[in-house]
């Protein structure tokens, strides 16, 4: 029974963190076929911005966090204008931008390594040391904060996409770019906005991640791969599916970690996704075909 509870507690936390970054990644792909390999670096960047504003600039945490998110949004906008903006009309956009963002990502991560050194930092924005017990399983308040934040943000993104005019334009662009333009949507603005939004979500996810473990320049690599795994499972571009798939992956990883051993969690989900890709390339909930180009 305790095993079960442990899996649920830890799986939901992982799922909450993955969902934020995966939803952003999926939105960006869905809107303009950009597989953003720098997503993980932005995750890390967001987490470091908290340190920068808090430690170096002496802000209170309640100010540092929103400032970090604003910086992440700006990073997303800059990313758009240095990469996608120039490449949108050229051939092989989807593969070229993937390589370009691999380059940007490594440059950014090594830049962080250079600036902050390889030693881990403790994320100041954390309540990890305070916890309560449920059936002898300790649950830290930090987990509650993560669940609540993820829930609020996901509901917020959902409302934005389904109820607001600009959110509808984002969905319309993802479903048919030409038609959206015919409706008067300035699609490039949509791209910038989506990348900024995705970067904010990534930053929140990065802050959460670092609050549960620690802050390191290269910490974005694994969560990026996990976010990719999630959106592949959901079917590329399926935003709602990404949410469910994130929770599924979180629970699966937690189950393997608790039942088999901590080091097998990641290989297990990698094998799972490879099998899914071979068996159902359009994803678990995929309706669309893989041949999108």
């Amino acid at each position: 029974m305790n095993f079960f509870l442990q899996i649920i507690v830890s799986g939901l936390t992982l799922g909450a963190m993955y969902s934020l970054s995966a939803v952003g990644l999926s939105l960006v792909w869905g809107s303009f076929n950009m597989l953003n390999m720098a997503h993980g670096a932005i995750m890390t960047l967001g987490a470091y911005f908290v340190i920068i504003w808090f430690d170096s600039m002496g802000m209170t945490l309640w100010l540092a966090a929103p400032f970090a998110l604003i910086c992440a949004a700006i990073a997303g906008v800059i990313l758009y204008f240095i990469s996608a903006h120039w490449m949108l009309t050229k051939r092989a956009f989807d593969t070229n931008i993937m390589i370009a963002t691999i380059g940007i990502s490594i440059a950014l991560q090594t830049g962080l390594l250079k600036a902050f050194g390889g030693e881990p930092y403790a994320q100041p924005l954390s309540l990890r040391s305070y916890s309560f017990m449920v059936n002898d399983v300790p649950v830290s308040y930090q987990r509650l904060v993560i669940w609540a934040t993820a829930l609020i943000l996901m509901v917020g993104v959902g409302i934005f996409l389904s109820r607001t005019n600009f959110g509808r334009a984002v969905r319309a662009t993802a479903q048919n770019r030409d038609a959206a333009q015919l409706m008067g949507v300035r699609v490039r603005r949509v791209y910038v906005a989506v990348l900024a939004l995705a970067s904010v979500l990534a930053a929140v996810s990065g802050i959460m991640l670092s609050s549960m473990k620690e802050l390191m320049p290269l910490m974005g690599g694994e969560p990026l791969l996990k976010a990719f795994i999630v959106i592949i499972l959901a079917g590329l571009g399926n935003v709602t599916g990404a949410l469910y798939a994130a929770i599924l992956v979180g629970l699966l990883e937690a189950a393997v970690q608790v039942l088999v051993g901590a080091q097998y969690g990641f290989p297990a989900i990698l094998i799972f996704v490879i099998l899914v890709l071979i068996w159902k390339p359009a994803g678990l909930f995929g309706r669309r075909t893989v041949a999108r180009q």
């Binding site: 240095i82 990469s83 120039w86 490449m87 050229k90 092989a92 070229n96 931008i97 390589i99 370009a100 963002t101 691999i102 380059g103 940007i104 990502s105 490594i106 440059a107 950014l108 090594t110 830049g111 390594l113 250079k114």
Partner: peptide, 20 residues
């Protein structure tokens, strides 16, 4: 050693963006 990857990353990105 560390700046090298920053520069390489930048080069890869710049080549893909401006002269694919």
């Amino acid at each position: 050693l560390q700046w090298r990857d920053v520069i390489f990353g930048g080069i890869v990105a710049a080549v893909m963006i401006f002269m694919p």
